[in-house]
Design a protein around this nucleic acid. Sequence first.
DNA 1: ATCGTTACCGAGAACGTTCCCAATACGGAC
DNA 2: GTCCGTATTGGGAACGTTCTCGGTAACGAT
Lengths: 343, 343
Amino acid sequence: MPVDPEILERQSRVTLHDVAAAAGVSKSTVSRILDERLPRSDSETAKRVRQVAADLGYVRDGAAASLRRGNTMTIGVVVPRLTDTVMAMHYEALARACSRTGRFAIVAITEDEPKADRTAAQTLLQRGVDGLILSTARTDDDFPQELTARGVPFVLILRTDGRSLSSVVDDRLGGYLATRHLLDLGHRRIGLIAGPDYASSSQGRLKGYQQALAEAGVSVDPSLIVDATFGIDSGAEAAETLMRLPVPPTAIFAVNDNTAIGALSTLQRLGLSVPGDVSLVGYNDIPIVSRLPTPLTSVRVPFDQIANAALDLLTHGPTGEHDRIRIATPTLIPRRSTAHPPR
Amino acid sequence: MPVDPEILERQSRVTLHDVAAAAGVSKSTVSRILDERLPRSDSETAKRVRQVAADLGYVRDGAAASLRRGNTMTIGVVVPRLTDTVMAMHYEALARACSRTGRFAIVAITEDEPKADRTAAQTLLQRGVDGLILSTARTDDDFPQELTARGVPFVLILRTDGRSLSSVVDDRLGGYLATRHLLDLGHRRIGLIAGPDYASSSQGRLKGYQQALAEAGVSVDPSLIVDATFGIDSGAEAAETLMRLPVPPTAIFAVNDNTAIGALSTLQRLGLSVPGDVSLVGYNDIPIVSRLPTPLTSVRVPFDQIANAALDLLTHGPTGEHDRIRIATPTLIPRRSTAHPPR
DNA sequence: ATCGTTACCGAGAACGTTCCCAATACGGAC
DNA sequence: GTCCGTATTGGGAACGTTCTCGGTAACGAT
């Protein structure tokens, strides 16, 4: 079978040198003209070179450019998993923020393994990323310290260790808003499905919960606080524990939407109606919760803002000591899953 | 402030040349020994070199290696969005398959814009990927043709255009299994929330639906087939249309889990119970559906198998003409959302 | 006419790796 | 002792780009 010469021609890469020859200038000139970082020239040569480059279908060889420039315009993102919609939203926001600044975000997954963030980071670093964004920080691990020691630029996102550069949401405020909302509706026994305590986000939401109760003069009943992971099943179990209490709560604040969905399932199974018998609040406002049979009241997190802040910190660094941790503001979105307590 | 010399030392990259000098051999030798593609040597020099490289903390400069080798060991994946859990599962499966073969998967998002797959692919190509995996194929677009003409290696996944290399699931069988399951339970009026007809997956599921009905001697009532997109809201609307029919269906097969979740919401709103009044079947078996208050019967798709097949096709090509489209087998997972029709 | 100043251009050396090629060493067979 | 095959090594030229540096032209100010 004869080979299409057109194809062959396409396959052999067209380089700067080819463009230079075709345009009758040196490759230095072409390089300069096509360098998007330099102020754009509109001289005759510039126009001609751009035209020729387009005609020939020239695309810069990224590998060669990276080698010479010493950076890749690529940043690495580490997430526990992407099938968790929160993490997908977060990655999408970062990807958008990157493309706005001519960069690209690549992602590595830890599958929720405690130490897998190290290998994930290593993979990304080998790929030559210019910096790292981690959403897997644990308060009981000093991986961030190691990275600092190795001189790797990175920013923590969603969770912080309190020291490293971080871009997070005000989880204490989020927890406060959720709990306050339930208190305002008249609830006094409010269950908390608390997240794992190695995550600063869980801790913050817990503090907000306590603060709101304290403010309202309601004493905190420890039996109303049940630990959980961030998973659906765990939320279901926690809700079961809560509702089997001698005096069960009339409302539940779940550490995130997943656990709230799990709780919803338990409540339904126990024949309890939401919000008739029990009110329920989630956290993160992932798209699905507004479309559940009973749309869920949730706390919305400004992912794009957090992503932008993270990227800005990574690129330009903090403006001062006070700027090492940027904190975005969450918003409560009331929906049908919360109402006055039953009398 | 004095600069920590340790940090400075770390910052200046340790190259092949450094290892070579430290080990007293040439850089050619080091390069060969550290080349993971060559059969691993266990000679004295090899051991020493590896030791020295480790001690010095050498990591290969990916950009330089790519430039010389002419490939990047990176493949590009195009998806409509990652907040759709199906797409996230699919990307995670591809990422796993890649890492098993020493490669890495990077992803670009089209936000469901019809022509955005072109720019997404372009972005990935500029990043120097060795090949493309597209999950955005439309039967009414010839982007795959263009790629073929340009000589870009690619494989379609989940959806096919019937010509290009593809790795898909047997959607006709999936649709058949779902419908057959409902027929076996005794349903005769089965509504179909059909997906967009530009997707081969929708078309296949529709054919399976028709085939199962035909086999059972049930005539196809066109009013029971309602078009939708793949989104939750669209599923909710479609279910509304179905249930407002003069003679509404006793069961609904939704083209995917998202539309099923939308349908669930409508049914609940109309005061109908699942499966008491209406049975419901979804497609893809995303994790959440097994944890809904009423766990959803769904069709499970072997994502890992599909990902492996796609990657194999991309790397080694088809074994023959018959092998251009690889088809995996779906499985019906019965759960509580399906039961006998009400009498 | 001279001197800056500004703008543009080309030559050529990097960047860190791979890989071709020639050279050397080591056996074993004759 | 010679010859051949096999392994292992180092030299050095790529790969395609960027970037420094020196050079030239144009132009206004002196």
